[in-house]
Design a protein around this nucleic acid. Structure first.
Lengths: 339, 339
DNA sequence: TTGTATGCGTTATCAC
DNA sequence: GTGATAACGCATACAA
């Protein structure tokens, strides 16, 4: 056992609770209490231990603490694709909120692969206190199995019985269709995203329902995956279908559509209107994309809140929490009246 | 000690090495060796232990292993800003490579704040085997202090004595200036990024050096931070300076410039040329941005390789490794001859 | 080749 | 209030 097998300088042994206890002239148990349960100790004793700890530069050993308590001070956030611009803000807010809650964040990337996601959760399961599972590609049963072992908070996955926070883009998509109909577009397309995505099925349904209600003709085009190239490749089909406007599953696809339309000399928004979704990139890129707001950051923070709640309250915490985050349309520069 | 304080179902106690040993009819030590050092055991014994482990669904407890060995199977990657599109691909490749190396990834966000970065490293230091420090905002001394405790691999920070991987955008920026000069632009601007960023100083120097060599007039404009809004706000100054082309610190700023120019009715690329940097977003957004390639993914993977090397070889590993990743200009649609 | 005994650093259950 | 002491689960000298 050579804890110094790496290239770091040995230096003096890192102080342990035992060192602190000795320096403070108390037992290890008392030293421990000075940190974890100071109220039961005489204030004077607490102060003495703290002083000793400070002098020695004592830092508690997380591994030992975890082994003893079963709590790791760690949370895992699993996403299908880190490179997809929807997730970084979500991850960022998870990290931020976790940090203030005293938790560190383990990052897992499932690469859109359910098998990989499952493996990842098994591997990480024993070293974290809980999971934030974003846009999971797992089956309901698999998720339930994992949730039986470790607390799991779902983001954008509506599984009854588990705490979940849902970004309800249906409202925004509905607005988008209304917006386009009001502009005179009578034939619209929805360019769909990942098949196993909850968000995608929500958006597709809202699109169709609203189109029918308003009496505009809906077309459904599959892009299968969310990528710039997929959006670009969907353009020929889009033009062939005869629509004059499209609602894309997300901003990434929308930008691909923009590129594809430019290739075909179709002007946006004069000849063709494009609506994205998630408002990620849309606010960081030119031209300003009309899109549906997403609130991914809020979703992440809320998920962490639910998790810490569950961690603190244990089984007493309500487990069937369902937080719905409302969305709305943000009209920018890629939609205009039908030509 | 109630490891089940959360809402999970109790179920059968998770199997430990002791359970496996008992089931296989061997001692705990032998069971342990079956995993960590199988060569010293009779193959038959190894098989029996593995079978028992499989039947019981045994998963080694990372905390116990860490406490015993001092190795955590964890790596921390620290970035200044998760939301900045430069970092997600880097983080993703770190995660990917770490995963194949059997390491999990802890994510830290310094929010561009050196103090926060320092705190983060202190907090995480005891639970990881090493750090990948991307675009660190820390002082040289601080980095050295941390590196003395835990192996640190630097990305885009050139600190002699520490393993580092540098994305050498100087070459690409040089090409960009040459490209613009060849197009007839005789007065160029560099829109700079974060002051403490190594990448920024590299780019600024390359810009000025090349401009002087080619006899074109260089202007330096500060954006201070990398954001869409900052790029947008820099446009008035840009136009006032009389330049006809700009090289922005990164693609995010470049897109902001694009938006600002549109506001001022300046056509790109006909009246004004814009070059970005890092080729992130540029390939996912329309219009296609002329930019400098970045290879952030390769940088992340390489950093992990250097770290695992160091972890395996210990102090014998060469510590002054300096990996330089070359870059080049990618000409797309935002540059054209001077009007 | 395998078993025995001990330590890793902390928390928690008893006593006192 | 405080102090011994036994876990927690695993790895590893040392014996055999």
């Amino acid at each position: 056992m050579s804890p110094r097998a790496d290239g770091t300088t040995p230096g003096p042994a890192t102080p342990t609770l035992a060192s602190v206890a000795q320096a403070a002239g108390v037992s290890r148990a008392t030293a421990s209490r000075a940190f974890g349960n100071p109220r039961v100790l005489r204030p004077e004793t607490v102060a003495r231990v703290h002083a000793a700890a400070r002098d020695l530069g004592y830092v508690p050993n997380p591994a030992a603490k975890a082994l003893s308590t079963g709590r790791h001070g760690l949370l895992a956030v699993i996403v299908p694709d880190i490179a997809n611009p929807f997730f970084p803000p979500l991850i960022g807010s998870v990290e931020g909120r976790a940090d203030t809650a005293g938790l560190a964040v383990l990052l897992g990337n499932s690469a859109e692969d359910p098998a990989r996601e499952h493996l990842l959760m098994n591997k990480l399961g024993l070293q974290v206190d809980g999971f934030v599972l974003a846009a999971s590609r797992l089956s309901d049963e698999q998720i339930r199995t994992h949730a039986a072992r470790r607390p799991v908070i779902l983001v954008n996955r509506d599984l009854p019985g588990l705490p979940r926070v849902l970004i309800d883009t249906a409202a925004g998509v509905t607005e988008a269709v209304e917006h386009l109909a009001a502009l005179g577009h009578s034939h619209l397309a929805y360019l769909s995203g990942p098949a196993r995505s909850w968000a995608n099925s929500q958006r597709r349904k809202a699109f169709r329902r609203t189109a029918e209600r308003l009496g505009v003709e809906p077309s459904l085009l599959p892009a299968r995956i969310s990528s710039y190239a997929a959006g670009q490749q969907a353009v020929p089909g889009l033009l062939a279908s005869g629509v004059t406007a499209v609602v894309a599953f997300d901003d990434l696809l929308a930008h691909g559509v923009l590129a594809g339309l430019a290739e075909h000399q179709v002007a946006v928004p004069d000849e063709f209107s494009v609506v994205g979704c998630d408002d990620v990139m849309a606010s960081q890129t030119y031209p300003p994309l009309t899109t549906v707001s997403a609130r991914a950051s809020e979703a992440g923070a809320t998920a962490v809140d639910l998790l810490t709640q569950r961690l603190e309250q244990g089984a007493r915490a309500a487990s069937d929490v369902r937080v719905l985050l409302d969305t709305s349309l943000v009209v920018r520069a890629t939609t205009a009246p039908r030509p």
